[in-house]
Amino acid sequence: MVGFYEYAYQYAMHYIPKEEQPEFLWWFSKDNLKTLLKNQASLTQHYHSYPNAQNHQYFETKVVKVSEDEKSCHVLMGFRYIDDIIEKERAAQKRLQDALDETKRSNETISTIAKSYSSIYQLDLVEDTYERISGSEIIPKTGCASKRMYEVCEQEVAPEYRNIVHQFVDIKTLASRLDKEDDILAEYRMADGNWHKLRYIVRKRDANGKALQAIATIRIISETKRKELNLFFEAEQAKREAKTKTRFLQNMSHDMRTPLNGISGMLHMADQNPDDLGLQKSTRNKIHQSLNYLISLVNDVLDMNDLESDHFTEEEADFDVTKLLGNINIEAQQLAQDKNIQPELFMKR
Rank of each mutant, 00 (worst) to 15 (best):
S116C: 03
F59K: 08
G143P: 04
T246F: 05
M149P: 03
D69H: 02
P51F: 03
H48R: 12
D255R: 09
R189Y: 00
Y117T: 05
N299C: 05
L212K: 10
I215Q: 11
L345R: 05
E236P: 07
V66T: 12
K180F: 05
S296R: 14
L96E: 15
Y130E: 13
V63M: 08
D306H: 14
E102P: 02
I295G: 04
L291W: 00
D271R: 13
I133Y: 13
P259F: 15
D179C: 01
H48E: 04
K180P: 02
H14F: 13
E137W: 02
H14R: 08
E236H: 07
K204C: 02
F28S: 05
P22C: 06
T61F: 05
V169L: 06
G209Y: 15
Q40V: 01
Y47I: 01
K197A: 08
D338H: 11
H56I: 06
K38F: 07
T61K: 09
A211K: 00
L267D: 07
H196Y: 02
Q167D: 12
P17V: 08
D170W: 05
I133F: 09
S282V: 03
E127Q: 11
Q280K: 07
Y50R: 12
K65W: 03
V75I: 14
L231D: 13
D300I: 00
L229E: 10
D170Q: 10
D338Q: 11
T283L: 05
D276W: 02
Y81C: 11
Y11I: 06
K348Y: 07
M256P: 00
D98S: 08
